[in-house]
């Protein structure tokens, strides 16, 4: 299977996850989107050396992965490219920020190392939260929630169309690469002189298909509005879910929960 083919499969499997009808999938999308936004704000608000406080935020992805029956291994596998990128970005921190904070098992711990770890976990938590949202909520439901939050219609429509066109572009790329491979057996990758024409072809074909999708949507009355379909838990339970998580996360953000729990045990 080609790279684009694998990417299409990944997108479809994420859509399958969001359609499973588990308790988390049936929570109203507005509640899930609001909690995710709140979580992202809180995670990003931690200082660059506050690894102790940040660690408490792991409660959200851990509990939701258990509740939503989402494989942590799969999540990590899918987040791999982003994590790799963050590691590369964070690697510069220990080089520039060398203030000694202490030693751990004989190893010198500098503030740069701490900020690198903090940055890494901030990204892991943020990406995990977004992944959990995608794995429990379809793109149409997310768009519906965004419209309810008064995000401008044009932005939400663009978001939806980008998502749909992404799949189309990948499908076109997959077809083109398959056709190329069949006519270039034994070749590894794509020859440099073929990159330009292939990219151009892919772009033109994707544009054609994107146009057809948009026409099909408008012919069936699409005017940028999104509708919520399907069975959801009663609104009160969804509200309870949202308020409950907002409160729990606020507690973990503003109180040193781990330290309090630790002191209780020590005393």
């Amino acid at each position: 299977m080609t790279g684009p083919g694998r990417a299409i499969r990944e997108i479809h499997s994420l859509e399958d996850l969001a359609e499973r009808g588990t308790f988390l999938c049936r929570i109203h999308p507005l509640a899930k989107v609001l909690v995710t936004i709140w979580y992202l704000i809180l995670v990003m608000s931690f200082g660059k050396y506050d690894i102790e406080g940040l660690w408490g935020m792991s409660i959200y992805p851990v509990i939701l992965m258990i509740l939503g029956d989402i494989s942590a291994g799969e999540a990590i596998r899918r987040m791999r490219p982003i994590l790799l990128m963050v590691c590369l970005v964070g690697l510069a921190n220990p080089l520039f920020d060398r203030e000694l904070l202490g030693t751990f098992g004989g190893m010198k711990i500098t503030s740069g190392m701490l900020s690198m770890v903090t940055l890494f976990f901030k990204t892991v938590f943020a990406v995990a939260a977004a992944y959990i949202l995608m794995a429990t909520t379809t793109m149409e439901q997310i768009c519906y929630a965004l419209r309810k939050l008064h995000v401008p219609q044009i932005l939400v429509t663009v978001l939806l169309l980008i998502y749909r066109y992404l799949v189309m572009m990948l499908k076109e790329a997959d077809r083109i690469m398959q056709a190329y491979r069949l006519r270039a057996p034994g070749e590894r990758g794509i020859r440099k002189d073929a990159w330009g024409p292939l990219a151009g072809q892919m772009l033109l074909r994707s544009m054609d298909r994107a146009q057809a999708v948009y026409e099909s949507m408008t012919l069936r009355g699409f005017r940028g509005e999104f509708f919520l379909r399907g069975r959801f838990v009663p609104p009160r339970r969804s509200a309870f879910y949202g308020i409950g998580w907002a409160a729990i996360l606020a507690v973990f953000r503003f109180l040193p929960v781990f330290r309090i729990v630790g002191s209780v045990f020590i005393s």
Binding site: A18, R209, A212, V213, S216, R220
Partner: peptide
């Protein structure tokens, strides 16, 4: 209504 030549262009929801 108009049924496109390529049905893939017309089907874009999940189910």
């Amino acid at each position: 209504g108009y049924v496109f030549q390529d049905s893939d262009s017309q089907l874009f929801m999940n189910t």
